[in-house]
């Protein structure tokens, strides 16, 4: 199955149709699919979304970034670059483009090679920035996922450069984390890998769903090594998806 077939199938499933044309009402699902697609797109690609009136939005994507967005209500490309370009793409995405998805009764999707030459110096906008903007200022990611992870913990260690720089929580559990930091934390970091600008989370748990989980949350050179209730797994995953944990939002 080609990438285009896969994307169209996803959209069709989201809208409950088998014919590639879909019924509106689940904007969030389409946005989620598009963000996933942008995240997975390396080579230059043009995505065209068309509504029942023939209005079109064109997204130019390459290198896991949205480089350009054009359609009704969007100003011309202009000369903005860097942060300005990202800010304008975000504004167009959450403004005219989202309104286009909200108001469409049917949406057709097509994708292929771009009809324009892609300027390799264009920076565009990352999925993380788009996701954070879509979440809104009141639902955005925590300023520091490491702090947020420690807030969820029964006990935790704060690590910087592999060294323990802080301890918190129940003393008996901290006493379990200390030897793990010496014997296992480096291995955990090796498996988790690391992109300095994106939070990462890796957690281990036993067979029982009522027990604890051992987690490492890392961001920008710092990490939290924590023991947390099993129920915290959803919040930990949300932290690394740029979402606000439910417990923090309440």
């Amino acid at each position: 199955m080609s990438d285009l077939d896969r994307l169209n199938n996803k959209l069709a499933k989201l809208k409950g149709s088998d014919e590639g044309h879909v019924v509106a009402g689940v904007t969030e699902g389409i946005v989620s699919v598009l963000l996933t697609e942008i995240e997975e797109t390396i080579l230059p690609r043009e995505m065209v979304l068309t509504n029942e009136r023939g209005e079109r939005f064109v997204l130019i994507v390459t290198g896991r970034r949205l480089l350009a967005l054009d359609g009704p209500g969007v100003e011309g490309p202009g000369q903005a670059d860097g942060d300005d370009a990202a800010a304008r793409i975000v504004a167009d995405f959450i403004g005219p483009f989202r309104a286009f998805l909200d108001h469409a009764r049917e949406i057709g999707m097509d994708a292929g090679r771009p009809h324009i030459r892609i300027d390799p110096t264009m920076i565009g906008c990352s999925v993380e920035t788009l996701a954070a903007a879509l979440a809104g200022p009141d639902n955005g990611p925590s300023a520091d996922p490491v702090d947020a992870a420690l807030d969820l913990a029964l006990a935790g260690l704060r690590l910087a450069g592999g060294e323990i720089v802080g301890r918190s929580g129940a003393a008996d559990l901290v006493a379990r984390l200390d030897p793990f930091a010496a014997a296992g934390a480096a291995g955990l970091a090796q498996v988790a890998g690391g992109e300095a600008d994106a939070p990462s989370c890796l957690f281990l748990s036993g067979a029982g769903q009522q027990g604890m989980l051992l987690a490492r949350v890392a961001f920008r050179g710092e990490a939290a090594l924590i023991l947390a209730p099993a129920e915290a797994s959803g919040d930990l995953i949300a932290l690394c998806r740029g979402e606000r944990p439910e417990t923090a939002a309440s």
Binding site: L35, E39, A192, G193, S200, C201, L202, F203, L204, S205
Partner: peptide, 11 residues
């Protein structure tokens, strides 16, 4: 004993 693990990073 560890039975499961989940890793989340960069989508």
């Amino acid at each position: 004993p560890v039975a499961e693990a989940v890793a989340v990073q960069g989508g």
